[in-house]
Each structure stands twice: as C-alpha cells, then as structure tokens.
Design a protein around this nucleic acid. Structure first.
Length: 655
DNA sequence: GGGTAGACTTGAACCGATCCTC
DNA sequence: GAGGATCGGTTCAAGTCTACCC
C-alpha cells in the first residue's frame, strides 16, 4: 500500500476556497453583531468586610476599594510576593485614590487586604456549594448572554465569536520578569470601543447613556470591535471563534503554504549553506539564522522595545550571552549550547552539534562583542522575511516551524505506529509522535500540581494488577493440574475460564503500564499547542500506518453530507463498550472511510486493511443555519482546530 | 531599507464541566 | 453520590508579519 505523503503536491482540481476568494483583501460582504458584552460594574464590599491600614479599619472610596479588591483577590498568588508587582500596583493604586486617601495610605506594607481576600474566597466556595437548581439558573443566565452576544452574522451565516466580552479591569499579569506586572488594567467603556460592521446591517446599540468611540464599516479586516488597552498601549480585538469559516480557511491556507515549502526547501537549504561562505557578513548572518530556524524550529525573534516587556528573545534577537560554543562536548564536535528565554519567558535550553562552517561563523559573529550585544547584529526579521518571500511566495520564518512540526509528526507516526497494536498502544504511539513535535517546538508546561499523587495512584493500581495477574497464573496452574487428574468437561471448562481471566488481566496490566509511560513522558510537555496550531490534520489521516484522526467536536454541531453518518459519539460509545473499550475511540470500518475521502488532498488509499480511529468525544447537535440563507450554502461545523478544518472540507465537497 | 501601527496567530494558565473511581 | 482527575474551552499575554510612512 503506497504511503500518502502529506507533502506530495496534490493533483486536485481548483477548490472552492480558491473560487470563493474575495478580491482586494475583502474579508466579508455582510457583518452584523450586537457589539461587545460589557462586564458588570463593580459591586461594593459588604459593610462588615474591611480594609485595614496600619492595623486599623479604613473605609475606602468606591474606586479605591475596587482596585484594592484586585490585589486582595491575588493574595495567594506568587505575583503579590514580587517587588515589581507590588510597586507597580501601589503606584497605580495611589493615582486613583482621593487626596485624603493619598495622605494616609503611603506604605503598602501597612495595608491589610486579608479580610477582603477571605471574603472572595468564601464567596467562591459558596458559589461552588450552591444547590443544583441555583447553579442551573446561573448557567442559563450565562447561556442567554452567550446566545445574545456570542454570535454574529457573517455573509449569511451565524458564526461564533471568540471573545465577545470586554476584558475586565484588574492588575496586569505579565509573564516572566515583566516590568509592568501589577499595573492597573482599566475598565473598558463603550466610549473606548470601535465597532466594525457592515453599513447596511443593524448597527449595535451602545449601553444606555453611552456612545461608541467610532463605528466603522471596514470589510478588509476580520475584527468586530476593538479598543486600546492602557498597559502597553496596544490594540485589542473582538474576533471570530477559531471554528469560523474565516479562521478555518486561514488555517488551511497556512498548511498549504507549509506544504509548498516542501518543494523548495532543498533549494533553500542549499542556498543558505552557500551563503555561510558569503563575503557579506549580513548574508552570512542571515544564512546561519535561517539554519537555526529550520533545524531547531526557533521563532523569528522580532526586536522589542527595551524595558517595555520581559527580556525574551527569538532567533534574530539572540545575544552573545545566549550561546556558548564548545569545539568538543560529550563526544560531539562543534556543539552550540543555547540558553535563553523565549516567548512567554519559557526557557530554551539545547545543546546542538552544528556544521563546522556554522560554528566558524558563530565564532566570527561573537568576536570582540560584549555578552549583551546582538549575535546577529546586522540582521532583522524584516530583512530575513523579505529574502524568504523572494524564495517562495508566502514564505516567512514561521512557516518553517509549521513545516518542520508537521513533517516530524508524519515521520514519527510512520516510524512509531504498529498496525498490530491495540487502541492503547496506538494512542501511545500517536502521543509520542505528537510529543516529538512539542519537544521540537519547545512547548512546555509546568508540572501539574497533582502529578506526583496521581502517578502514585496509578503505580498502586499497577502493583495491585500485577498481584492479580500472579494470582490468576497460580489459579490457572491449579486448574490445569486438576484437569490432568480428572480430565472431565467441567475441569476443562475451568481451565478455559482461568485462561480468559488471565488474558484479560494481562491486557489490563499492559494498558496501565502504557498509561504510566505516557503520563511520565508527558509530565512537562504540552501537546495542545502543536495539535492546535502546527499539525496539519490531514497527516493524521494520510499516513500509511493506522492513524488517529483527531476530530474534536466539542459540544457543537456537525452535519454530514446526505447519505453519510456520524461515525460515533460519546454517548453512543458508552453503550458500545463491548465493541470498543475506550470511551473516546471508535474503529472506523471500510464504509466510513468514505467520509475521510472528503479530504481534498491527499485522498485516502482505497482497499482494506486500514483501521482508522476517530476521536469524537461529544454529541453533535443540530446544525444552525441562518434563516433566509441561500439554499446549498455551506454547512458549518463547530469545534476546535481539527474539526474546524474538517468542517470546511465538508463544505467544499458536501451536497 | 528602517521604523512602526495595526492585524492577526500562537501560547500557557486558568477554570468549569464532565468523567471515573470508590 | 462524593470527590478527585481529566478534558476542553476560555482568557488574555506575547509573539509574527504586513502595509505604509519616510
């Protein structure tokens, strides 16, 4: 059976996504929505909950009190132990105080927020302990808001909005050593908000007594509303949910660009290798940087304003202090040791053996420089991307990350999956392939707080199961001896029974062991980001080996073209345990592959012998169409990334 | 070609709902 | 049915990249 290469150029005909392409950067023809949902105004603390200054109760003005509650709520967070956070908070808080308050409240150490903190903790507990009916009532209220504000109409379709609420006021939580952490994030008012919609739509009403900053009719952008936040003075947007057609198409285009890179990557690699010896230092720097971006999946590394954000870097902004050169290390030659903080202040630490010419270049770039100077001092991401654009239309530094992530998944799936494995084994292989990508992209997570405990519980289960297996082995032995003595049908039956039991227990033990391995290997690695942003879902379908097609339906909807059925769903599966012991997976039989064949490229191979596993965690509900939408308009499916992708594929090939 | 505002994607942390086990 | 674990969605910070200015 030939393997379907994700990256082989497809021979498919022109698709609907090309036909529907709008001219001149136009993103939509019709956009109607309710505007953002504004978070409720501040509710004052009860009289008996007090703030104390220097040991004495102190009644704060309403505005001052509100900001005090922001700090009080965070008392058990590490942030409030940081000096920068405390200083920024106190500075901003004092600015909002009345002159009387300013006169008295001069020292944060004398402020006691504990009673306020306790009030919110208790309130939270009380909310959790609410009777079922009360909780249901709250949920219904939230659902009503979601219904009302959470959707818009775009080109005749009801689309889910990603973030329809304005961000609530609070204290800024920058990541890492952010110089602005603790600063006051101000409340967003309608007067701060720019609305974007179509001219002929029903323009959203601002809350009573208010007006919008501006109403715009710009269909070359995708946002519905925007405002400028006060911490970094940057724009924030209200945009569509990733499940929307607009985002889905963009996602698909991203993977198409990555697939195109496959055809030219060898030429590009050959060129940057030549450029390592260029007479122009600038070119050499570009070539070495590109090598790192390609080989190590580093981010581009735009320049950042000093003192405005945490000190993090990417490839082009690496400084001399971030690498160490070792002519020899651990039996390898020309080793570069990277140690720097990347996006979100996540540490990147890696020792890599590089080509001799790269090593020599790095020595040259570092010569006579201070540790704090730029390694690639003549290079900018702009310069690099312009060069890449010249090599391939649409190529930028980040495409290499997508490309390398996806091709790593494909290669690892091929290498790791064993068609003979059971579901647990296949899942382990899939996770391992996914993990290889996460490691490449340096997607880390903090070890879950409950990790040690849950690992211990799992180990206890394994030990107990081992004991059961041993006992079952003993019992089988006994039964066999009994059968030897008696040789009757009952004894024979008993042997068979004991054999079955032993087999079942051994399988359970194997499954537990796999689970433990998976869990341990995944301790500090976050799989979600790569699954969501870097892995072309078609790869999960198109590999030669049995695959897991990760379709995340969420609680949302799916309508398959007529004549095709939903492959499985959470609730059904629970009744099908005999058929498939794993709650979340259902083996897809031959006839179901028809659905998979709706992937535009590459097509699935015909013929038996392929077991595809679909992940369909939740029950699909009826699809929604906007009343009056033209007949045959695309069916939309909602869910996260993979499903999003699936959804527009269905549209293109649907009825 | 450098600088920058604006638009959009990527990312880890958080949190509520659901699931699983006892 | 309680309680803990896990899942999946949400949040909002922090990146990338383009268009446009000079």
């Amino acid at each position: 059976m030939p393997c379907l290469e994700w990256l082989d150029p497809g021979t498919e005909e022109r698709g609907w996504w090309e036909e529907e392409k709008k001219e001149g950067g136009v993103k939509w023809m019709q956009l109607e929505h309710r505007g953002p949902y504004f978070v409720p105004l501040y509710e004052p603390l009860p009289e008996d909950v007090q703030f104390y200054y220097d040991g004495k109760p102190f009644k704060l003005s309403l505005a001052t009190e509100e900001i005090a509650t922001f700090y009080a709520k965070m008392l058990d967070h590490e942030y409030t132990t940081k000096e920068v956070f405390q200083n920024n908070f106190f500075h901003d808080w004092r600015k909002e105080m009345t002159s009387e308050e300013q006169e008295i409240i001069k020292d944060l150490d004398k402020c006691d927020f504990r009673e306020i903190h306790k009030y919110f903790v208790d309130k939270n507990e009380a909310r959790k302990a609410l009777p079922k009916e009360e909780k249901q009532k709250l949920k219904e209220e939230a659902d009503k808001i979601q219904e009302e504000y959470g959707y818009c109409i775009m080109d005749g379709h009801r689309e889910k909005i990603g973030n329809f609420k304005t961000e609530p006021p609070g204290l800024f939580r920058g990541r890492g050593e952010h110089p602005k952490m603790g600063m006051l994030k101000k409340r967003i008012m309608p007067e701060d908000v720019i609305i974007n919609c179509s001219r002929d739509s029903k323009i959203p009403e601002p809350p009573e007594g208010h007006r919008w900053k501006e109403v715009r009719f710009d269909n070359t952008v995708t946002w519905l509303a925007s405002w400028t936040e006060n911490i970094q003075n940057t724009l924030k947007y209200i945009m569509l949910n990733p499940s929307s057609k607009l985002k889905g198409e963009k996602d698909w285009q991203k993977y198409e660009v990555a697939r195109r890179l496959k055809d030219v990557v060898h030429t590009i690699r050959a060129q940057y290798r030549r450029d390592w010896k260029s007479k122009e230092i600038k070119k050499r720097q570009r070539a070495v940087a590109l090598y790192f971006i390609d080989k190590l999946a580093l981010r581009a590394g735009n320049e950042k304003e000093e003192g405005e954000t945490a000190d993090t870097v990417g490839c082009c902004s690496l400084r001399v202090e971030h690498i160490q050169l070792h002519p020899q290390l651990d039996g390898q030659e020309h080793v570069v040791e990277f140690d720097f903080l990347g996006k979100d202040s996540i540490r990147y630490y890696n020792k890599v053996s590089v080509e001799k010419q790269v090593f020599k270049n790095l020595q040259l770039f570092m010569k006579n420089k201070d540790p704090t100077e730029d390694l690639f001092d003549q290079l900018s991401t702009n310069f690099l991307n312009r060069h890449l654009q010249h090599l391939m239309d649409g190529l930028t530094a980040k495409v290499f990350r997508t490309y390398n992530a996806s091709i790593t998944l494909q290669e690892q799936l091929k290498a790791l999956t064993n068609p003979e494995d059971n579901v647990a084994g296949k899942l382990l292989s899939y996770n391992r392939a996914n993990r290889a990508v996460a490691i490449l992209c340096n997607h880390q997570r903090s070890i879950p707080k409950t990790f040690a405990r849950s690992m211990q519980v799992l180990q206890e289960k394994i030990d107990a199961k081992k004991k059961q297996v041993e006992e079952a082995q003993e019992e089988l032995k006994k039964a066999e001896e009994e059968f030897k003595d008696k040789s009757d049908a009952k004894a024979e039956d008993n042997v068979e029974k004991k054999k079955k039991l032993l087999k079942r227990l051994e399988e359970q033990l194997a499954k537990l062991n796999i689970q433990a391995t998976d869990k341990e290997e995944n301790k500090q690695i976050a799989l979600g980001t790569s699954k969501l942003n870097y892995l072309d879902p078609r790869i999960s379908v198109a590999c030669k080996c049995p695959v897991l097609l990760h379709l995340q339906l969420g609680t949302k909807q799916l309508e398959l073209p007529e004549g095709r059925e939903v492959l499985g769903q959470g609730r059904v599966l629970r009744h099908q345990r005999g058929l498939c012991r794993n709650r979340r997976f259902v083996p897809v039989e031959e006839d179901h592959q028809e659905v998979l064949q709706h992937l535009p490229t590459p097509q699935l191979p015909p013929g038996p012998g392929h077991l595809h596993l679909l992940l369909l965690p939740k029950l699909p509900v009826q699809p929604e169409r906007v009343p009056g939408a033209p007949a045959g308009s695309p069916v939309r499916c909602w869910g996260s990334h993979s499903m999003r992708f699936f959804s527009f594929l269905m549209e293109g090939n649907g009825p």
